[in-house]
Design a protein around this nucleic acid. Sequence first.
RNA 1: GGGGAGAUACUCAAGCGGCCAACGAGGGCAGACUGUAAAUCUGCUGACCUAGUCUUCGCAGGUUCGAAUCCUGCUCUCCCCA
Length: 426
Amino acid sequence: MKVDLVKELTWRGLLQDSMPGTQEALNKESISGYIGFDPTADSLHVGSLVPIFLLMHLQRAGHTPIALIGGATGMVGDPSGKKAERQLLDKETLDKNIKGVRAQLEKFLDFEAKANPAKLLNNYDWFESFNFLDFIRDVGKHISVNYMMAKDSVKSRLETGMSFTEFSYQLIQGYDFYYLNKNHNCKLQMGGSDQWGNIVTGTELIRRKGGAEAYALIAPLVTKADGGKFGKSEEGNVWLDPKRTSPYAFYQFWLNASDVDAEHYIKIFTFLEQPQIEELIAKHTESPHLRLLQKTLAEDLTSRVHSVEALKMAQKASQILFGKSTADDLKSLDQQSFLEVFKGVPSKKIEKTTLNSSVSVIDLFVKHSGFLSSNSEANRALKENSLSVNKTKINAENTFSESNLINGKYLLLQRGKKKYFVVEVG
RNA sequence: GGGGAGAUACUCAAGCGGCCAACGAGGGCAGACUGUAAAUCUGCUGACCUAGUCUUCGCAGGUUCGAAUCCUGCUCUCCCCA
């Protein structure tokens, strides 16, 4: 094999645990490995990048990656890491989600590779016609309830309650592995550490039912040094879909990583080699204010997930919003650049007549733009001195009229340092 | 089927007739300091023309001058026994 995958994942901090024999099996021959993606939304988010990178590493190491979309498992709901019973999704939503997730996964894997092209499968295809009685006879018979109850995902829910539906999830996922093993010669399942229980049920099923060999490998949960949840910004989840999270916001998310986190992330979310990364870290330690790690990370991922053009726009927008630019610089932007730069920033159109009479700060921020949710909040913000228009701090006495417009058309509202809003007058 | 406990703002969690828009903690937001970082400090965190008002404590009624706090019914959750 070209690369020792286990070694590679280990130094990147992507390996938490693996089953005995996994490394040997990977180094012996080219095999197939899979990861499941649940269609809980029509887009994946940055958290899903970890399993995606696992699959890409697998392919780069000369193995065949299988991305499995959980059309069937998505109908049941994985209890792993969940405190309460999940809401079931209806069929239409699920179909829409499957389409969205599929399109995103296709961007990361090479389906044309000569020796080891990636595969994209949906487990609904083999569960659709699998009836309940057959399932409990053929699959359920091999796994004891005692065994299933011992899993953390089940144990932790014994007090608060859990439906039979979610209880049976691990069997269904276990059968996936069995099916892939039998029909696609898949010998490896990977995933996040919360998947360990589910994965082991699969290897157990393969061993008992088929007598074949199967391995497992899990990545640790990505964390933040301050204990917060990875993958959230103030707007909520950071998605891969540009309609949900603009490339600008996506770029900013990575750029805002703390130093400690950036050191971990650069290993996990880029393919830079160890020496390069060590050099980057050394440089960063030398002059941390340049934030070389964060920039490299943000650049690499924005261009990979979106595009080079999207990255350039995000950088330009960041430059203008956070660089040393002033109100004058802003005004010197031509309309075309202005529009492009602020594409990812929330905006609202208002009537020109609104500005005919001068408008108060509060009306502008709340009533006309909807940027802030209530007058109270606007008053609060004024008290904090956190509001700006066109990069200039304002107070309650300021009013606005056409003379304030950039390019005769736009107003740039700002709350704090990082939250922007564009008002378009027309 | 029998017995018990409970439902309070984003979350946890006080309060048990007026001093409650509701202690405290976490989270969130903002300001200062910085590097659009971390840590730290400070303020804010129901709405309304910043002035007192108004609507909030599972839901619906009732008692009272006055209720998140008492009573009745309903809904839901958990625990124990069968």
